[in-house]
């Protein structure tokens, strides 16, 4: 039998959630997926402060479950493209559709991992709580995350972080933190992972774990990864190169030939 305090909290939480059924910031998702995870047509992005186009006339499609590498020299716009897809940078022209809908904030099906995440170094947080944060968009008011414990445990196991659950995130190595952030994205229920140079801080072991996570056949993510390491391109289903403000497909997923080479 649950103690009276938690019973009371549950009753209160249920009553409040009946009054205000949806967490107001979560964007409603249609279950529409179709063949394409990402569809981009004539995309252009201008950065106001630089008063110039980072890229323009960019068009490509990425099928569901396709692992895509985004390569190109420094400053070519790989990070800008990922941020635009995530809805963090507004597009100047063109059309983007992720699972058939425009990119916007509040979509739990999309996760973006920055190259150097700007985490508050003063905020005390244990790894388990970091991973639990992925579930926040799915919770109602007043709800805690305990009923997602199984999901969290499974993500931690997948990324081999079970022994570090109580460790402060500030005492994790760069690789362990990156794995923690990927576990958070998995718990979030993300289906498209937009990853900006995720291998940059990884040692060999961490890299192996992350590759297993991203490329394992049982994990059905659609991955778009900005990377410098062209040697790894064979692992990807598709390689897109961004250079001098335009984009071309180097090789495409089986069954999906170059559309905009």
């Amino acid at each position: 039998m649950s103690p009276p305090k938690s019973h009371l909290r549950k009753l209160f939480s249920e009553a409040f959630n009946n009054l205000f059924p949806a967490v107001p910031y979560a964007a409603p998702e249609t279950n529409e997926s179709g063949d394409w995870a990402v569809e981009v047509k004539n995309l252009a992005v201008h950065i106001k402060s630089q008063n110039s186009a980072v890229f323009s006339g960019v068009s490509f499609e990425i099928p569901v479950h396709c692992r895509t590498a985004l390569i190109g020299p420094n400053g070519s716009g790989k990070s800008t493209l990922l941020k635009t897809l995530a809805g963090l940078i507004p597009q100047s022209a063109g059309e983007i559709k992720l699972f058939g809908s425009m990119p916007r904030i509040g979509r739990s099906r999309i996760a973006y991992l920055a190259q150097s995440p700007q985490l508050n170094p003063d905020f005390p947080l244990q790894l388990k709580r970091l991973v639990q944060m992925g579930t926040y968009a799915h919770h109602g008011w007043f709800e805690e995350c305990h009923h997602a414990d199984e999901k969290v445990a499974s993500a931690l196991k997948l990324l081999e972080l079970e022994d570090l659950v109580d460790r402060s995130v500030h005492n994790l190595s760069g690789g362990q933190l990156q794995r923690g952030l990927l576990a958070r994205a998995a718990v979030q229920g993300a289906e498209i992972l937009l990853l900006d140079e995720p291998y940059a801080a990884l040692d060999t072991k961490s890299r192996e774990i992350v590759e297993n996570f991203l490329f394992h056949k049982d994990n059905s993510f659609t991955v778009i990864m900005a990377t410098h390491e062209t040697a790894d391109s064979q692992k990807f289903d598709r390689v897109l190169e961004i250079r001098d403000g335009s984009l071309k497909t180097i090789h495409a997923c089986a069954g999906h030939k170059n559309h905009h080479a």
């Binding site: 809805g87 973006y112 995440p117 700007q118 985490l119 944060m133």
Partner: peptide
């Protein structure tokens, strides 16, 4: 808690 620790992720979730 989320916005205090990781503002960008809070923004992405729409918080």
């Amino acid at each position: 808690e989320l916005a205090s620790f990781d503002e960008e992720y809070a923004h992405l979730l729409g918080a």
